[in-house]
Nucleic acid binder design. Structure first.
Length: 557
RNA sequence: AGUCCCGUGGUGUAGCGGUUAUCAUGCUUGCCUUUGGAGCAAGCGACAGCGGUUCAAAUCCGCUCGGGACUACCA
């Protein structure tokens, strides 16, 4: 640990606990997802808070499925969550754990509590229980069954477990205080009857523990020291503590921090699911989705996601982290790692009149200026090439210093090129340029040292590969889609968030790439090979564009 | 309305009684450049308000204002 670094409030608590020897110097955290959906950026944050802290202090980290509600949970989600946690880089070693493995122990603890007169079987149905609970302003009323004898409670609870009663007919409840100002303390249910097959424990149980009862026990059983969770559990902490205290068992400390929101996206599992089921996106792994699998498909790296979670920080204040920060982290990481190639998204044909027909000139190109070990490759240059349509302007505006009639630019790693003629179609669109090249400038250096203002990318017209490119933009048009009271978040879906470009031209080096590989198209952005690609048809996803000060200058006007 | 939590540049974040109020992102400008990328340099921009304690308050106390969480047999 670097003591000179600023410490968030959780690390400060842990520092103090270490100093006082509260947990014998141990640090043990956990990530407790319910297997009822896919992990997303918010989950990544929770993982990096928990795993990051354990790792930093030389402690342990558990992946624990909080699988106490068989109605909502599926094997599919268990598998995807394990995959995503591993991909993110959180190492739970051999501790892939399931709450459902503790059901017997929890049951035994419940019997302890009944024997202590602190829990009772209640016959109220859901509707009546709600009625009896009162609300924020009015105190609740005691259940008619609150004073049942310990013997009767023990008997009833055992029969609940044996399956003698139908779903919803009885619950086991903690006996606390129906007038408590904290609603969570108004005799909260601990068990409900649910005759359902569980994805991990099968049909072994027909009573299932409820979160508040289960979670502290799980933490206690695993020897967790610091149970880090989000703010909405703050009001549950008194109950977390109450159960552990009444049982008089090992007592971890729950600490809450603010969940992370990110601008222009949403982080709710429920609504993410709605986007998928209503086909507003193309599945959970749509590259626009903030899901882990979506970001993976988009080409975001686990290192970038981790860095983002760290830069976002930890505090208790409600927050919306700028999406731009995520993009900055992705660019930072990819800049160091991604090989460069040239790709033309919107091709404009150029014929170089003074370059021999049929000749293929193989030119050296550096793979990654940021990484000398990445080596170099050869790029074929021919008489006919493509450049980016946006790199030519018939009537160049001020500060545009790329190609224009009579103007010279550098073709990256190739030759200095001058535009001589423009060919237009009947509609007046520029369809082709006739240019010439300074044959003494091979490699891109001016023989007389003359300055050339711009360097543009290009691709051979005959020796390039045709690809499809998918462009993604922010999923929503507003920073906080959930924040508009009178509007449904779906109204803000960005109609331009997904575009497909066909007929893009990329240099031949990309044919060796595999699914998921990322490259930088020079001057354009980072692109990764989509799993939809086949041998004859490479499809690229744009992960993120390069910073483009020209584009910003234009937008500012 | 009740309980709990939280207010530092546009967005996040540090600060723990004395600082030119940190860092990142963002934006602006300059340098450099065979990516208008990267890098480098400079700049812009904040302590919610009001009282109090103190020689000294972003830091401690009180009030006001503002924001968030919570009324599932979900987690």
């Amino acid at each position: 640990m670097d003591e000179s670094q600023s410490r968030d409030f959780i690390r400060q608590v842990i520092d103090e606990d270490l100093k006082t020897g509260k947990y014998d110097g141990r640090v043990h955290t956990r990530f407790p997802p319910e297997p009822n959906g896919y992990l997303h950026l918010g989950s990544a944050k929770a993982i990096w808070v928990n795993y990051g802290i354990a790792d930093e202090y030389g402690g342990k980290f558990n992946l624990r499925f909080d699988d106490t509600n068989p109605i909502a949970e599926e094997k599919e989600f268990i598998d995807s969550i394990v995959e995503d946690v591993k991909w993110l880089g959180a190492d739970f070693e051999d501790r892939l754990l399931f709450s459902s493995d503790y059901f017997q122990q929890m049951y035994d603890y419940a019997i302890d509590l009944i024997k202590k007169g602190k829990a009772y079987v209640c016959d109220l149905n859901a509707e009546d229980m709600k009625e009896y609970r009162g609300d924020y302003n009015t105190p609740g009323k005691n259940s008619p069954n609150r004073e049942r004898s310990v013997e009767e409670n023990l008997d009833l609870f055992e029969r609940m477990k044996k399956g003698e009663f139908p779903d919803g007919s009885k619950t086991l409840r903690a006996k606390i205080d129906m007038t408590h100002p904290n609603m969570n303390m108004r005799d909260p249910p601990m068990y409900r009857i649910l005759h359902a097959t569980h994805p991990h424990s099968g049909d072994e149980w027909c009573i299932y523990p409820i979160y508040d009862w289960a979670h502290g026990l799980e933490d206690s059983i695993e020897g967790i020291t610091h149970s880090l969770c989000s703010i909405e559990f703050e009001n549950h902490r008194p109950l977390y503590d109450w159960f552990l205290d009444e049982l008089d068992i090992y007592h971890p400390q729950q600490i809450e921090f603010a969940r992370m929101n990110v601008s222009y996206t949403i982080m709710s599992k429920r609504f993410l699911k709605e986007l998928v089921t209503k086909e507003l996106v193309n599945g959970w792994d749509d590259p626009r989705m903030p899901t882990i699998c979506g970001m993976r498909r988009r080409g975001y790296t686990p290192e970038a996601v981790k860095e983002f979670c760290y830069r976002a920080g930890i505090a208790k204040k409600a927050n919306i982290i700028a999406f731009e920060l995520l993009e900055a982290c992705v660019r930072d990481d990819l800049n160091k790692k991604a090989s460069r190639v040239m790709g033309v998204l919107d091709p404009l044909k150029i014929v170089i009149d003074n370059f021999p027909e049929g000749e293929i000139d193989m030119l050296d190109a550096i793979n990654n200026p940021e990484d000398p070990d990445a080596g170099s490759r050869q790029v074929p240059f021919t008489r006919e090439i493509f450049i980016e349509r946006a790199d030519f302007m018939e009537e160049p505006v001020k500060k545009f210093f790329r190609l224009a009639p009579g103007r010279e630019v550098r073709l990256r790693y190739a030759y200095l090129l001058t535009c001589n003629d423009i060919i237009k179609n009947d509609a007046g669109d520029v369809v082709e340029l006739h240019c010439s090249v300074d044959l003494d400038s091979r490699g891109g250096n001016a023989p007389d040292g003359r300055k050339v203002k711009a360097t543009i990318h290009w691709v051979s017209a005959t020796e390039s590969i045709d690809t499809e490119i998918r462009l993604y933009d922010r999923l929503f048009t507003v920073e906080n889609p959930m924040g508009e009271k009178d509007h449904d978040y779906k109204e803000f879906i960005n109609p331009d968030s997904f575009k497909t470009l066909a007929g893009c031209k990329v240099e031949p080096a990309v044919k060796d790439l595999e699914h998921g590989d990322t490259v930088q198209f020079e001057r354009t952005g980072y692109f990764c090979v989509d799993p939809d690609s086949t041998d004859g048809n490479i499809i690229f996803n744009r992960t993120v564009g390069l910073r483009d000060s020209w584009a910003r200058m234009q937008k500012g006007k």
